[in-house]
Amino acid sequence: MNVYKALIAAGALVAASVAPAAAADISGAGATFPYPIYAKWADTYKKETGIGLNYQSIGSGGGIKQILAKTVTFGASDAPLKPEELTKNGLVQFPMVMGGIVPVVNVDGIKPGELVIDGPTLGKIFLGEVKTWNDAAIQKLNPGLKLPSQAIAVVHRSDGSGTTFNFTDYLSKVSPEWKSKVGSATSVEWPAGIGAKGNEGVANNVAQTKGSIGYVEYAYAKQNKLPHTKMVNKDGKTVAPEMASFQAAAASADWNSVPGYGVIITDQPGAGTWPITTATWILMYKTPADVATSKAALEFFAWAYEKGDKMAEDLDYIPMPANVVKSVEATWTAEIKDPSGKPLFTAR
């Protein structure tokens, strides 16, 4: 995580928790990826309404464990739960915000956005089959670039993470060999490379290691000024990682095709679509024990959907499209209820 951003976010959370609480504070735990934007929203929301949000960024796995143990109002995860898991535990799941994952490289003479890579080649690199930068597979995609004969050092996450889940999901979609040999999960058995902890660990290792390639959240690549690559998307078009290509991916997804909005938006069709785009989800109980706090949490999320877009874009996150927000809010009204069966949330 960008240190500066983390400090601001941590400061915001401390400030939010120290200030006298006008109402019961909302508590949440989970994914580290959306932590900066949740902290920013929480800080602004606290100033406007006096209601605080205490979010612990302990990781998606931890977030799922915490909500199942009922120690928090909501859990947050970068990997969606399966519909049957949601039904079994009486949980509601909805996407909160989106981000992009970009391959970053450290090759002498390659500037940000110069190198073009397609999915199958990326799969071969991470499988350890393409071993040097001047391999024919990479050279073919970059006829104008002079690539060195240097060995490729693959850098991946050593901890379980939603970023890995989405990245490996993409590789499974574009490379049958990856799908059969490795598969997709929050952590996998990597066939090659070096492991580093967290987005910041991957970013640092790529920055330190000559000839390396890794994958990080877009915000980390942008803030650490790491040379990102362009990607060839499903339509065969070369795209750069930027807000427009991430939004194109979000817009092309059919969010209602999976219960709990568990749509993984990697490898989406569309000429301008960035192929490795991800969402992050919130988990809440259908019949929460603490009705008042859950109600406050839903109001906070509604506020974030309505007023948080600018803040999200400032931090390089992608806001949810308006039609998805409308659908999510309808889901709240239909599914999240107090013990008497009264909905906790009604759209304004």
Binding site: I58, G59, S60, G61, G62, I64, S158, D159, G160, S161, T186, S187, E189, W190, G193, I194, G195, A196, K197
Partner: peptide, 30 residues
């Protein structure tokens, strides 16, 4: 160390240790 779950003949290759594995993977072990 490189945190890679592989046994390599080369000392220059990445590997992992018991404590490094636990520290890396415990929080997200599903």
């Amino acid at each position: 160390i490189g945190n890679a779950h592989r046994i390599s003949g080369s000392l220059l290759a990445p590997g992992t240790t018991i404590s490094a594995t636990i520290a890396n993977e415990f929080t997200e072990a599903l």
